[in-house]
Design a protein around this nucleic acid. Sequence first.
DNA 1: ATGGTTGGCACCCAA
Length: 260
Amino acid sequence: MKIATWNINGVRARIENAVAWVREAQPDIVGLQEIKTVDEGFPAAAFEDLGYNVAVHGQKGFNGVALLSKLPFDEVNRGLPGDSTDEQARFIEGVFSVPSGALRVVSLYLPNGNPIGTEKFAYKLAWMERLRRWAAERLLTEEPLVMGGDYNVIPEPRDAKDPSLWTGDALFQPESRQALRAIENLGFTEALRATTDEGGLYTFWDYQAGAWQKNNGIRIDYLLLSPRAADRLVSVGIDKHVRAWEKPSDHVPVFVELAL
DNA sequence: ATGGTTGGCACCCAA
């Protein structure tokens, strides 16, 4: 079972890339982030034609997440619990039937939080605490859970080409990194770090200042695995080559292979 | 080099 996450930065502007990558990678389940459209604007037919079921949690202009799945959805949950006033579409959960039972897959778009010292940074940290509480509750099910997404947190210095560029950025604040560790410490395995200690593995390169050409990247997209999912981990990959395509997203897909 | 690029939308905002 191949499960992927990809911040696509506008699914309508990126539909040709998206279809090309799905055809090439043949993932079973994909979480998309920053689709930047309402539900009705999502190009579902393009993915249905490739054999996928589609679940969308959209928003006008900004944010928005979706799940594509070759398996039928048994259940879909939209929105991160914990704040009924939050109108930002950043979280969707799908439940699927696999031979071993239920599989839960999340597509999340964690708030960027810049600039620090503003309500945006406070919202980021509050959102992360909500995610921690939600995840703690889900772990009680002892089912395989895969939380993939754009976490907007650089976990460690080795996850940036030049960490000094990010010292004042919300993505690399001690509070952001600590909040990420608090989620992982519930018992999650960050898939890529379960397989390698290598630095220099990035998932995002800014459009500006020739970041891609200079390989000035950061690793902010990953998949957290519950213990039952981590037990089944076979491999992890980053589809870096997609960043070199015409009209690319500034993020690339990340995927895990699980033996479920 | 405190720069510059993109998507969505409607004039700048978010990233």
